[in-house]
Design a protein around this nucleic acid. Structure first.
Ligand SMILES: [Zn+2]
Ligand SMILES: [Zn+2]
Ligand SMILES: [Zn+2]
Ligand SMILES: [Zn+2]
Lengths: 162, 162
DNA sequence: GAATGTTTTGCAATACTATAACATTCCGCA
DNA sequence: TGCGGAATGTTATAGTATTGCAAAACATTC
């Protein structure tokens, strides 16, 4: 089994979430960034599953726990988490997902299942390289890459096949 | 000079726009799709430049010409144009750009200059292939690809350099 | 420990993007 | 001419994200 393909297969997801949180705490400590209760809780909510959540989904959950949650509360937390490489925004969905390569410098390639909504983040050197060289061939200097693939994950393919 | 790099260099843009419109008319004729005045005008507005426009930018321009323009007017036109492969939506900007490969089946890779905002659409076989194979390695069957690169175009690099 | 500057959070309002639902008009076709 | 589907008009609303300012929490220095 390919370990990175976990989202598409039954697995002990508590481990995913716990490791992500632990990793985040460690990264923030190193960077002297303050992983406050709100920020940590938002990250935890995101790590409930491998399915992306919208800001207002997060807000709804957060609001059920604390009185004072408003849009800026969650957007600020998300900004912080993105800045520190702990979550990714999925532009094609207006939603957010936990980064599975936090701490490693990488260009995430997101495989989004259109059926079960699970997202797998890959970091393929091949892809990164071919993108960079295609851009550079045009004299273009890349800064930020958005690469999102929608399709069917292995599990959902077999379910849909006749 | 690489012809596809036109957006980043001085060029006779009227030619771009005219060719795009002509091409669109021909494509719609072939497909028996009705390029109505509204739709054609929206396409023309998009082709004013190589800079992406938001739906409400288009709406503002459209509204100055016709009484009855409302959000659905422009969104419907944009839907039509997208369905027929004449424009692309840029997810990371919530904006729209004319397709420079209309009629050809392709996966557009968009190079977006963060300074001058000009967009170049590339169709690199290499990139497409490496993405597909990275996805398939995970057993993932791709349907739709969003690939948007933000960075500095050649012109803006030299302007920014000391 | 009090004073101070900085970061984070509270709060209200608003901006921006996109769609729903239903009525009306237009257009090709019998 | 009348029919039926496509396109547009119209109003309202849903969904996503930001601004601006005030209050509180926190770290730092004295
Ligand atoms: Zn998991
Ligand atoms: Zn799936
Ligand atoms: Zn041009
Ligand atoms: Zn530029």
């Amino acid at each position: 089994m390919v370990v990175s393909a976990a989202p598409y297969h039954p697995h002990n997801h508590d481990v995913c979430a716990r490791e992500a949180l632990d990793n985040a705490r460690s990264i923030c400590k190193t960077r002297q960034a303050r992983l406050t209760p709100i920020r940590e809780r938002v990250l935890e909510l995101i790590w409930q599953s491998h399915k992306p959540l919208g800001a207002y989904d997060l807000l709804a959950e957060l609001a059920s726990e604390r009185q004072n949650a408003a849009p800026p509360t969650v957007y600020r937390a998300l900004d912080f988490l993105q800045q520190n490489g702990l979550v990714h925004r999925i532009a094609s969905l207006n939603a957010f997902i936990g980064c599975t390569h936090a701490g490693e410098s990488h260009h995430g390639m997101l495989l989004i299942c259109s059926q079960c909504r699970n997202v797998l983040e890959l970091a393929s050197g091949d892809v990164t390289h071919s993108i960079r060289s295609a851009a550079r061939e045009q004299g273009f200097e890349p800064q930020e890459t958005t690469l999102e693939i929608t399709g069917l994950c292995p599990a959902c393919q077999t379910k849909t096949d006749p």
